[in-house]
Design a protein around this nucleic acid. Sequence first.
DNA 1: TCCGAATGGTCCACAATTGGCTCAACGAGG
DNA 2: CCTCGTTGAGCCAATTGTGGACCATTCGGA
Lengths: 249, 249
Amino acid sequence: MPRWIAGEVEQSLRRRIESGEWRQTRRLPNERELAVQYGVARNTVRSAIDRIVSDGALIREVGRGTFLSNDRDPDFQSVVRKLSGASPLDVMAVRMIVEPRAAALAAARGSASELEAVAAAHGSATHAIESGAFERWDAEFHQRIFAATRNELLNNVHELLRLIRSQDLWIELKRRSFSVERRLRYCDEHAAILAGLLKRHAEEASSAMLIHLQTVEENLASVPALSPSANTRLYSSARDPPEPAFRRK
Amino acid sequence: MPRWIAGEVEQSLRRRIESGEWRQTRRLPNERELAVQYGVARNTVRSAIDRIVSDGALIREVGRGTFLSNDRDPDFQSVVRKLSGASPLDVMAVRMIVEPRAAALAAARGSASELEAVAAAHGSATHAIESGAFERWDAEFHQRIFAATRNELLNNVHELLRLIRSQDLWIELKRRSFSVERRLRYCDEHAAILAGLLKRHAEEASSAMLIHLQTVEENLASVPALSPSANTRLYSSARDPPEPAFRRK
DNA sequence: TCCGAATGGTCCACAATTGGCTCAACGAGG
DNA sequence: CCTCGTTGAGCCAATTGTGGACCATTCGGA
């Protein structure tokens, strides 16, 4: 029956792939199952899949199944790969968007014990002797503010930003921008944020956080270029294209 | 028999670990017990645990048991896993933090051609016939605003939010909250945002975006609970129930 | 000190599932 | 009649799951 049944099945499969029907497991039903779904012989399904495989949208593995090709449309993994290479300027810009609002939310919604935990981290950072300890309590201070927002996703976003900042280039950057006066200033600014939080004054906490992040950014920007190439990698933002290309045609 | 049973068990175990089910004793049930819980062979449980051990979340000790790893530095992978389960309420809260500021940045820094691209997406969305096409242009509208911010990281963060919203539960949620009037209202609100952008008026673009997102949130919140179980997964900012055996026997 | 229960580590034979492949037959269209 | 897509069936090889058995280590009690 030369009525191009395989072609129709192929179209349908492509649509279903596009629609994200199998994005979770990245695995299609097996060929026998699909044959039943379409009321068609298994060979017909196979020839339909053959064509999709041949242009790379699907991958077949004997004994395992048929899977969505890995890097077709961006999935979480591929986005995360790009995340880890973010430039410090971009990171600080995003922090200045997210963290002041997080501080405001924490002031409005955080429980007493959550804010207490923030205060404790501030105290530990203030009294830290060694600079590694200070760094950890500094991070903890910011992290606990996010915890007080009661928004899991927001916490995860902050965690991603923190992970980006725990990479090699960042560590070097922080080391070079470190000084005792700056550390003292950070403590003062943390105190201002904390004061806003404890007073439940969202606006005050928010603007104190913004001021703090501006200080941090200035300090990072003051670091002389590490090397010409490193400089490019560090500071270039997405500056180029007059005509930006959009993904996902 | 390759039906990815080990994978399902692995996911379930990861969720149960995240949920803190074993935080008290820091110890998991033994492998034979888990095999009974899930109704699978012990070897299957073992291969599931293998994968969790290999990225450091669990530690096995012969003759003693399987334990939560105490000094676990969460990596990108594990954060991403948590991201994908974010609740709609949390997602909207984060969008309302990020997107208005992105609109402001786009108004301030976007090139003429980038803003033109935003306008084009708005036009296409307005004239879209089919609702799937509208959805795509709607997403494209928001995405192009981020492109105009010239901040790669910010784009990636938005891409993550978009990926979260492209999952099954979200699709169902959007489908149920859809109506023609709402779509028209979205178009009007998009127009207001676009007007702010084209006037290079950061404040106006920002507040128009916030208003728009508030509308979206209201519409999502108006959706009646899908089902008791789906409702839990949708709206709780937290985790799965301690799920028992899911297989036969 | 010694024993035994509990627990993870390893291995095996077997079954079940899945994609890869072939073949004979059918039927519509030329 | 011939061609070509389709059908239905069967078998193969690869992979995974099953149900064991046995070992090594740990730990508490006899």
